[in-house]
Amino acid sequence: MSPRGVAIPDLRERLFAAAERVVARDGAAALTSRAVTAEAGCAKGVLHTHFAGLDEFVAELVLDRFARGARSAGELSARTGRGTVAGNLAGVALGLLDSLDPGVAGLALTRPAAALHTREALRSGAPGFAGIEDSVRAYLDGERAGGRVPAGLDCGAVALALVGTVHHLLMTRGPEGPDPRESVTRLIAALVPPPPS
């Protein structure tokens, strides 16, 4: 337990990681501010010192994980011409799926105040799925220019379909649901055929 009044380095991430462990181990219903602080080894009131309440905390956790996904997708263009197109897209898509526990995503949807906070932040420009979609489209534009995908590929439509599907899977799959990796791999193969030889 951290001593009272002593600054805790990376407190937000420590609390977020603790919340993810609580949800993964005990389910979404077990997520309380006390459970988070106990798991993080912090004083009981520290979560409420830094967040307006559990709803804001859940929303900020989701927004943080969306921002991580957006940063990862932003690095996709650096892979243009390297590896395989399908592998590069799968890396981003599967990374997004792994970025947020389904139970936490469910909390963000079912707690009205958390959902509202998340929507407002995304509307105000917080990194999210729109930025991820733009990064995937820009990457595909570069691969099309390099001849690694068909010249007629609608890169915007492919980006929308891929990111929209990942968003759907992330926000609707249950903790005990099937692993979506096979579906994502099949979708990428259908959306991005190799260019004619």
Rank of each mutant, 00 (worst) to 15 (best):
V22E: 12
F129Y: 07
R34F: 11
F57M: 01
L96G: 07
G106M: 00
P194H: 02
G74T: 07
D10L: 14
P150A: 12
N88H: 09
L76R: 01
A7D: 10
R34T: 12
Y139E: 11
K44F: 10
R14V: 01
A105D: 09
A113S: 11
V163P: 01
R186E: 14
R144F: 02
R173T: 14
L11N: 08
V58H: 07
H167N: 12
M1S: 15
A52I: 00
F16S: 12
R137F: 06
V192H: 02
S99K: 02
G95P: 10
T84Q: 02
P127C: 06
A126V: 05
L76M: 05
L140I: 06
D179W: 07
V184R: 01
A113Y: 03
V104P: 14
V58L: 06
P193T: 03
R137T: 10
L31C: 11
K44E: 15
G103R: 04
R181V: 15
F51A: 10
C155V: 11
P180Y: 00
A19D: 15
S135N: 11
L153M: 00
P178E: 11
A161D: 13
T49K: 12
R4H: 12
L89K: 04
L63G: 13
P9C: 01
E120P: 09
S2W: 12
R181F: 08
R65F: 08
E176W: 12
S72M: 14
G27H: 08
A161W: 03
P112N: 03
L116C: 04
G177T: 02
P9L: 03
L100W: 02
G83V: 03
V163I: 08
P196C: 00
L169E: 01
T49Q: 14
R148N: 04
H48Q: 15
I132Q: 04
C155G: 07
G177S: 14
A138W: 03
I132S: 06
A17D: 14
R186M: 07
H167I: 04
F66W: 06
E143M: 08
R148S: 08
G146T: 10
D98E: 14
V23R: 05
P193E: 04
V166W: 01
A145K: 10
E75L: 15
A43G: 14
G5N: 06
A24I: 08
R148G: 03
G81D: 07
D10P: 13
G74I: 05
P178F: 05
G53T: 03
R71W: 00
R82H: 09
V6I: 14
L153N: 00
G45E: 10
A59F: 13
A24D: 14
S197I: 03
D134S: 10
P195I: 01
A130Y: 06
T80P: 12
V166N: 04
L63Q: 09
